[in-house]
Design a protein around this nucleic acid. Structure first.
Lengths: 84, 84
DNA sequence: TACTTATTTAACGATGGTGTTAAATATTGT
DNA sequence: ACAATATTTAACACCATCGTTAAATAAGTA
């Protein structure tokens, strides 16, 4: 789907799961603001909603510093632990 | 518990949860090798099992490089995205 | 030995996640 | 208006997690 719009049918194929299940997954993603839906005849074309993914990316990066310092502390603790 | 041994009773208090529930949590932690149990009369004294926690710490650190490079890529992608 | 205390185990129930099948809905072509 | 196609929704079931209460177990004490 990263390459553009895809009808639900294409997203269902080869996934070893019923269309109903996929459909509900898509609904959740849509409600979460991660994908968009557009009707074309009886088909629903799905595509990415850049804003939503961007928000996740930004959030992820915003936590980076927290994790860096946490891992630093963990490494320090391990080293101190080895000094016995 | 990081300060030493504690009887189950102490671990139950103030947790707003039944003793039975805490007891099962302790059992899971013990089976996971994260805590030790020792009997003293009718009490069970719990303490940390350093090896288990250490294994988790080591594993965590072992993933650090993976995440660093992943986040680097994410940051790069965000920057490229902003050049529009 | 029987009682009390500390803790665990058993049996049960609520909740959330996620899959399935069958019915409902919308759109297009006859 | 009717049938076929694409997709969604409804109803149901399964399983794991996690809490509860009540019964079981073990140790110390009268």
């Amino acid at each position: 789907m990263s390459q553009g719009e895809l009808p639900a049918g294409d997203l269902i194929e080869g996934r070893g799961m019923s269309g109903a299940a996929i459909s509900r997954h898509l609904k959740v993603l849509r409600q979460a603001g991660l994908i968009k839906q557009r009707a074309q005849g009886p088909q629903r074309l799905y595509s990415i909603q850049p804003d939503g993914l961007r928000a996740i990316a930004d959030w992820t990066i915003s936590k980076r510093e927290f994790w860096e310092t946490s891992l630093d502390r963990l490494e320090t603790a391990i080293l101190e632990d080895e000094e016995l």
